[in-house]
């Protein structure tokens, strides 16, 4: 690990000033400290923001949620309001990492997670994300766990977060605060696909800080849930996953929110699946028919072709679980 200076921000203004001076924000630190030890990350200054007042869950009008950026994963997962309104969020969180890590990691940091790609984490390997222009070791390498959607010539790493998949499905917004003031970005626009600039991972301006993630109100009653498929049953990243939220009234699906994880360079919204669901009546046949388009546009690599079929089955199964036809 390279030496760094350390400063603790007592209020937002101090934090933003330190951030504008090039300081790197640290909240839970579970990704950042790990990557600093691997020398993938080499910040000169750490700005500790864990003391800032961004640690509340608030129910907004109509049944939305505003989650303070410094809420820990464990706190959000256990929060009665979150559990009551959005099981998909608490489930995604509890299926992530370990109890220890969930006690440390915050929701802002979770969204900001860097890829788990082994070539990214290995400073002796080629990686366009870590060092633009050096190439992508994964493209022709061991890419069994890599993305099949949203990839580019430059990068094929998946976004590792589970809860971000729920946020993508529910069309969350990200609240930001920076030297130029506040702004809000749709979740779908916040995390960037690698394209030709894989080193740019978020729509974040210099010195900006995530203050909250907001879930817009959804039509009720809403049934939701998260399914994660992985190489071992717990404490593992997703090979595929599905976040589903359905609003059914008078026997017809009026609203469907579906996204997939473990398959995209960013959490992957499945609009084509949603379109097949909206206006239809729940049935076994419908789940299969909707899931059939889950992997549309996929570009499998040498070792991850299995994800195409696995993604369809993951989505179908979770539609069945949430839709409740069995």
């Amino acid at each position: 690990m390279y030496p760094f200076s350390y400063t603790r921000a007592s209020d937002l203004r101090t934090a933003l000033r330190a951030g504008a001076d090039g300081g790197r924000y640290v909240a839970g630190g579970t990704t950042l400290v790990d990557l600093m030890r691997e020398t993938v990350e080499r910040p000169g200054t750490l700005v500790d923001i864990s003391g800032l007042p961004l640690r509340e869950v608030t129910a907004t009008k109509g049944g939305g949620l505003r989650i303070g950026a410094l809420m820990r994963m464990a706190e959000i997962a256990a929060h009665p309001t979150v559990r009551a309104l959005y099981p998909v969020i608490s489930q995604a969180l509890e299926l992530s990492a370990s109890a220890q890590l969930r006690n440390m990691a915050t929701i802002g940091g979770n969204v900001m997670q860097r890829p788990r790609c082994t070539y990214f984490r290995d400073v002796t390997a080629a990686c366009n994300r870590r060092e633009p222009g050096t190439g992508c070791g994964a493209r022709e390498g061991f890419n069994r766990t890599h993305a099949i959607l949203g990839t580019s010539e430059q990068c094929v790493a998946t976004h590792p977060s589970d809860v971000a998949v729920a946020f993508a499905a529910l069309e969350a917004t990200v609240h930001l605060l920076g030297p130029a003031g506040e702004r809000t970005v749709a979740f779908a626009d916040f995390l960037l696909r690698p394209g030709s600039t894989p080193q740019r991972e978020q729509d974040l301006r210099p010195g900006e800080l995530i203050t909250a993630v907001e879930i817009p109100a959804q039509p009720r009653p809403l049934r939701s849930g998260y399914l994660k498929v992985r190489d071992r049953q717990s404490y593992e990243f997703a090979l595929t996953s599905a976040a589903v939220a359905l609003h059914v009234r008078a026997g017809v699906i009026r609203s469907a929110k579906v996204a997939a994880g473990g398959v995209g360079t960013v959490p992957w919204k499945l609009s084509a699946v949603e379109q097949r669901l909206i206006g239809a009546r729940p049935s076994e046949a419908l789940w299969a028919q909707a899931a059939e388009v889950a992997a549309e546009g996929a570009h499998p690599l040498a070792h991850n072709g299995f994800k195409v079929e696995l993604l369809k089955r993951t989505v179908e199964r979770q539609l069945r679980v949430v839709g409740g036809t069995r």
């Binding site: 350390y6 640290v26 579970t30 400290v33 790990d34 750490l46 220890q100 890590l101 006690n103 440390m104």
Partner: peptide, 14 residues
């Protein structure tokens, strides 16, 4: 709270 000591910077434990 249980945490991983290896990922906790001592400097943050004031």
């Amino acid at each position: 709270r249980r945490v991983n000591g290896c990922l906790t910077l001592a400097v943050r434990l004031e």
